[in-house]
Design a binder for these strands. Structure first.
Lengths: 216, 216
DNA sequence: GTGTACATGTAATCCGTTACATGATTCC
DNA sequence: GGAATCATGTAACGGATTACATGTACAC
């Protein structure tokens, strides 16, 4: 029922765009991310984009669902920022390759040069559960943090491989620098985990007597 | 039109819950966060919760919109995990205070003790733009990173005050530890920013000749 | 009396995920 | 021939944000 209104709204936006010939005020950042990946002048399929993002950008920005990548590509194609490449016939494994257009390159560049400073967003479930440590059993809390440390070490290993790979390529110096930044952050996380564990040792069961329900 | 289906779906879930008497399989983490704030045995309004979260939890987990807090409180009240406090008449500045119930406390505790390890999520727009550094003007990129560093220093100052405040209270040792963890992460971010700037100095305009459009 | 902070909420919308559907290719 | 991987999509759902609507209390 409000589908109709919604559809009309979308239609209006479409008309606006055609009439005034400009982009929608701002695309979501993930659209620019896809454009950014394509800005390396390679022809990529949705699948490629997903894989590349998983190996690199995800460590500091983006771990998209595959379906999301395809939807984003559709939107970008509709806006003329990206175009499908015609590789002789529908042969090569059914892959549909995309290439960035001039307008697309212009759009990412403009975004990267002029977008306002965005704040870092950190979502750290383990720290949240530490914050609520009074609700947990100290031993279980320790175990959680240790498990987290293991996972972080594993991730660090992956990132370092990714850094090595990027650093070895001439055209990948900026990506390598970004991955180095991410590496530093995960190392700090590891150190902070160790520090928290040490602090938990000092007072294995900190007093907090006024709780209504006894713990354990 | 699919509103109907959606509504039926919700009804089914409701019926399930009433029939089997258990919570919906898993509440979203933010619901547990609200419960967690209330688990400190204080009576809080939606506004209070928003403010407290902004001063503490937001640094590592959550910066909710106000309206989101109210919706979450409604849901929790509907589930009986939280209850409105009757403070004599609708006087005191129209505030509606909430208190955690026994079921609510049980639910957060269970969640904090048994939830599976969640991965840290980092969304760092500045690093993304560094990754795409080839699209930017080197001077502008430097400026962006410096601006980010300023903002991070400001945030660090806020966190440190928050840590001091928490550390001074007996019942806030875990929150203090969590904030210390966050502090370490933001300090590392600052250091990484400085490192990136230093690296940009070394090669102010790294070669990347095969670009289709000249920059600048 | 006017503006600012306090305080609570609803409606519409958006982004992203999950679940689902489908089919080609490769490896064993 | 059967499983795993590659590959592309659609539909439905859910969480969170933005914009909006409303009203009180207090400071100047």
């Amino acid at each position: 029922m409000d589908m109709t209104i919604r559809y009309i709204h979308q239609l209006c936006q479409e008309v606006d765009r055609l009439a005034f010939g400009d982009m929608p005020d701002e695309l979501p950042a993930t659209a620019y991310t896809v454009l950014g990946l394509l800005s390396f002048d390679r022809e990529l399929s949705g699948y490629d984009i997903k894989k590349w993002a998983d190996a690199s950008i995800r460590y500091f920005w983006w771990a998209p669902a595959v379906s999301n990548v395809y939807r984003e590509l559709q939107r970008l194609e509709g806006l003329g920022l990206v175009e499908a490449v015609d590789h002789g016939g529908p042969s090569a494994r059914n892959r549909k390759l995309f290439r960035i257009t001039g307008a697309g390159r212009q759009a990412v560049e403009r975004w990267n040069r002029t977008a306002p400073l965005g704040a870092l967003v950190l979502k750290h479930p383990v720290v949240l559960r530490l914050w609520l440590g009074d609700l947990a059993d100290p031993a279980e809390l320790r175990a959680l943090i240790e498990e987290h440390a293991v996972a972080t070490r594993r991730m660090l290993k992956e990132i370092r491989e990714s850094v090595d790979h990027a650093a070895s390529q001439e055209a990948m110096q900026y990506p390598a620098a970004a991955l180095a930044w991410a590496t530093a952050l995960y190392e700090a996380d590891l150190a902070a985990a160790a520090a928290a564990l040490a602090q938990l040792d000092v007072k294995p069961s900190p007093p907090r007597p006024k709780r209504s329900r006894p713990r354990r």
